[in-house]
C-alpha cells in the first residue's frame, strides 16, 4: 500500500463495537516457509497455477512501466536473461 493508497480511512467505531482486528502482513519469515512448502509439495497449494506471462529481461522495462494499469491474470515472471 503505497502512493495514494497508503492511508485508507478506518471506521474505528465499528472496530470497537464489533471488536474487529486489523492485521497487517509484510511477507513471511524464511523459517516459516517450510509449512507452505510442505503444502505445495503435497499438492494442497498449487502456486504454479498463478504464474502468468513469462517474459525476457529486455521486455521488463516496458512491463514495469505498464504495471500502474490493470494486470493480466496471475503473476508475470521474467525467465529469460540473455
Amino acid at each position: 500500500m503505497l502512493g495514494e493508497h497508503a492511508r485508507p480511512q478506518v471506521p474505528m467505531d465499528k472496530v470497537i463495537a464489533f471488536e474487529l482486528e486489523i492485521l497487517g502482513s509484510h511477507g513471511m519469515q524464511a523459517y516459516r516457509y517450510s509449512a507452505m512448502m510442505e503444502m505445495i509439495r503435497t499438492g494442497k497449494l498449487k502456486p504454479e497455477l498463478l504464474v502468468g506471462k513469462r517474459i525476457s529481461l529486455e521486455d521488463a522495462p516496458a512491463a514495469l512501466m505498464a504495471m500502474g494499469g490493470f494486470e493480466g491474470i496471475g503473476i508475470g515472471v521474467v525467465t529469460r536473461f540473455q
Partner: peptide, 24 residues
C-alpha cells in the same frame, strides 16, 4: 488491492459484518 503489504480485518463473530466496511 494494495500490496505487498496487505491489510486483513478479522471479526470474532459472524455478526461483525463491519469487517467488510473498509475503504476498498
Amino acid at each position: 488491492l494494495g500490496h505487498p503489504t496487505t491489510v486483513s480485518t478479522r471479526s470474532p463473530t459472524c455478526a461483525g459484518a463491519g469487517a467488510t466496511s473498509r475503504s476498498d
